[in-house]
């Protein structure tokens, strides 16, 4: 990973509000292509809001608005005339709680994004490829037409990852993807993130510092809506510049 490679995502002076609440304050950082950036910080520090600004989901919340510059391969997501719908096809998202479509089968969940966007063509191969990428194929290949709700929580979350992969995004945003899962399912999702970063750029919000240390190449520490420090994960956890970062990662608060 050469330092000269242009960033996949560059955030410059990003501010975000919920009504009067200033949730993200003047954040600037770069995300390297094909790497995992972990965003850590105590509850309410704006890390989820920051994540949702990267695919323009934040503005869907009543009172939600954002200003600043977020570029994806040099293209400003917040420029005038940019369609947020097309952004979300390039920047996929996995949520905290597994949210498969309850009326659809396992296979239909995976292909939902393609079908709803009017894609016509053979879906079976795409369904299989995405389920394999999400490490779920072997568990569900004999019951692709069962309801998605028949899966366990951990399986549902991997199904949601497969669903996000099917629309072939370039970036995958994950909002505490393992916080509703048990330790074994969590380990599977973390393993999966290692495999996925060969093809996707990943930004993951997590409450769990060990998880951040295990899965990420870079870590950003947020506190009270501000970005305190961002750097290589090893540096952040062993030799941070800021006292607040050190206090947080060593468990003195948060």
């Amino acid at each position: 990973m050469s330092a000269a490679a242009p960033p996949k995502i560059r955030v410059e002076g990003l501010d975000a509000w919920f009504g009067e609440t200033h949730a993200v304050r003047d954040v600037s950082l770069d995300v390297r292509p094909l790497s995992v950036l972990a965003v850590i910080g105590p509850s309410g520090c704006g890390k989820s809001t920051f994540l949702r600004c990267l695919n323009r989901m934040h503005e869907l919340v009543p009172g939600g608005r954002a200003t600043g510059k977020v570029t994806l391969d040099g293209e400003d997501l917040y420029a005038r005339g940019v369609d947020p719908v097309s952004i979300r096809r390039r920047v996929g998202m996995v949520f905290q709680r597994p949210n498969p479509f309850p009326t659809m089968t396992i296979a239909d969940n995976v292909s939902a994004g393609l079908r709803l966007n009017g894609w016509k063509g053979r879906l079976e191969e795409i369904v299989e490829r995405c389920l394999r990428q999400a490490a779920l194929w072997d568990e569900v290949k004999d019951r692709l037409h069962s309801p998605a709700t028949s899966l366990s929580g951990g399986q549902q979350q991997r199904l949601c990852i497969a669903r996000a992969l099917a629309v072939e995004p370039e970036v995958l945003l994950m909002d505490e993807p393992a916080s509703a899962l048990d330790p074994i399912a969590t380990a599977r999702v973390e393993e999966l993130m290692h495999e996925l970063k060969a093809r996707y750029t990943i930004v993951v919000v997590t409450h769990n510092m060990q998880q951040a240390a295990r899965v990420s190449d870079q870590t950003a520490f947020f506190y009270m809506g501000e970005l305190v420090e961002v750097g290589d994960t090893e540096t952040i956890f062993t030799n941070p510049r800021e006292q607040r970062t050190e206090d947080y990662v060593t468990g003195k608060f948060g």
Binding site: M57, V85, N99, R163
Partner: peptide
């Protein structure tokens, strides 16, 4: 209908009107 399903659909790049009708 849980808001999380609406979000799931919107995050796939499905427009709002289609999300309302199809999801």
């Amino acid at each position: 209908v849980p808001g999380s399903l609406r979000e799931a659909s919107l995050a796939l790049g499905v427009p709002q009107w289609k999300t309302s009708l199809r999801i």
